Amino acid sequence: MTQPAVDGPVQHTGEPAHPDRPLPLPAEMKAVQQPGHAGTPWRKAAVIAAAGIPVGLLWWLLAPSGLNLLTRNPDLAAGTNTSTWLPRDLVLAGLCLLAGCIAGSFVAGSKHAQPAPGTVILVVLAGAAGSLLAWGTGLLSAQWWGAPADISASASVAFSLRSYAVLAIWPAAIALAIFLNSLFPGSGGTARS
């Protein structure tokens, strides 16, 4: 009696082998091949970039020479006061840092499933797009709902951003959050037996 040649280990499932039916996969491989995971990085990137709209609205609502809800100081309400220019940029910097940390922890995964390098690049680029969208939304909000400003003395009198380096904070915070999660993975996820 001869046995058929087998190229790999034989798995016995208790069911007779059928040529049209594929062999059952282990549980870990089934989790990777579940439908619906293919578009997840793109959806996360879209959510991160779209978050720039509420961040830009918050920047205009909170910042000095915007609606100034953060300080409510009437001396900081006008852009003609040069002491409003730095706090205005710092409000956007803080909002971008917060948004980047939240987005980075949203994408970072668990200690069992780190994001792929392509996903990291995609979400960092989405953070840059969100930062630009926040800047544009803040400027547009100031044009629509803010008081007109006489910018003959300086363009910074109008609601604007003086330090463009602030726009790099959001993508940098995403990259840093993902990096720190890969260095110090938490106990996210349960141990499999």
Rank of each mutant, 00 (worst) to 15 (best):
Q3T: 14
P4K: 04
P9F: 09
V10G: 03
Q11E: 09
H12N: 05
T13E: 11
E15C: 01
P16Q: 11
R21V: 14
L25I: 06
A27R: 12
A27I: 11
E28I: 03
M29A: 13
K30A: 14
K30P: 08
V32A: 10
Q34V: 10
H37N: 04
T40V: 15
W42G: 12
R43V: 12
A45I: 03
I48E: 02
I48Q: 00
I48M: 06
I48G: 07
A50T: 07
A50S: 11
I53R: 04
G56W: 02
G56F: 09
L57R: 01
L58N: 00
W59Q: 00
W59P: 01
A63Q: 03
S65V: 04
L76Q: 07
A77N: 11
G79H: 01
T80Y: 04
S83C: 03
W85G: 06
L86F: 12
P87I: 10
L90E: 02
V91Q: 03
V91S: 00
L92M: 06
L98G: 12
I102E: 11
G104E: 04
G109Y: 08
K111C: 10
H112Y: 12
A116Y: 07
A116N: 03
P117A: 12
I121R: 15
L122W: 03
L122H: 07
G127H: 01
A128E: 04
A134H: 02
L139P: 07
L139D: 03
A142L: 11
P148A: 05
A153V: 07
S163V: 10
L167H: 08
I169N: 06
I169E: 01
W170P: 01
L176T: 12
A177V: 03
I178W: 02
N181I: 00
S182F: 12
L183E: 06
P185G: 06
G188W: 01
